[in-house]
Amino acid sequence: MSAAADGDENVRTEMRAFIEDNFLYLDPEADLADDQDLLAAGIVDSLGFVEIVEEVEARYSVGVQDVEITEENFGSVDAIARYVERKRAGS
């Protein structure tokens, strides 16, 4: 496994835990898939996405522009991991 993939997996693990702790704590049996659509599934609402953005900014030291707060970048655990990876790569 490459270093980039390791980092990617760490982000997945950390953000999955963040989402489970903050949005699914009353539903501990829920099995959150990494490709689960967080908005469509009703797990995270718009304000919740702002909380996720703040967590990403604080945890990974990346600046998130308003126009980047989209489902493409934050709509699932996978999307968040890909987004963080792109930001770290400077793109």
Partner: peptide, 12 residues
């Protein structure tokens, strides 16, 4: 609020 969309709404 941000512009209407079927997706995430952000408040400023």
């Amino acid at each position: 609020r941000s512009a209407p969309s079927a997706s995430i709404t952000v408040f400023s």
